[in-house]
């Protein structure tokens, strides 16, 4: 079971990385989301094998480790907030520029063309 989850995390993170490398903002947002899911799965796995719920009986020996789940919940909430912000930003970018692409940096281009007729 753990191996399957590790593979799922691997596939998710590779797809996320691929999407991040594109120039379209909507793809970047989806890519970030997939990377986040991959890491959340890793966090769940870090608690080791599953066990009984921590409130079932008095013997803590067979309990599942509750800490990674607390981590994951926190991280899900945070990534929800950040991805909402990112979507709002992508929407604003579309409003301002009229397209969905990551733009070149104006100043970088100015420095790059320095000395080739692009100087001030």
């Amino acid at each position: 079971m753990t191996l399957v989850m590790v593979l799922v995390a691997g596939v998710l993170s590779s797809c996320g990385t691929y999407l991040l490398l594109g120039r379209q903002l909507s793809r970047v947002v989806i890519g970030i989301g997939m990377l986040g899911h991959a890491v959340n799965i890793l966090l769940v796995l870090s608690g080791g094998d599953g066990g009984r719920p921590p409130f079932d009986g008095d013997d803590p020996a067979g309990f599942a480790d509750p800490l990674p789940h607390a981590f994951v919940l926190t991280s899900i909430v945070i990534s929800f907030g950040v991805i909402s912000f990112l979507l709002a930003l992508a929407y604003r970018s579309w409003q301002v520029t009229g397209n969905d692409e990551v733009e070149d940096d104006v100043e970088d281009r100015r420095v790059a063309t320095h000395g080739q007729g692009g100087a001030e």
Partner: peptide
């Protein structure tokens, strides 16, 4: 918005790696 996008995405990647 343009530079904010770069900043947010880079910071998010760092946070993901941190997790």
């Amino acid at each position: 918005v343009r530079s904010g996008m770069t900043y947010v995405v880079i910071s998010l990647i760092a946070s993901t790696l941190f997790l």
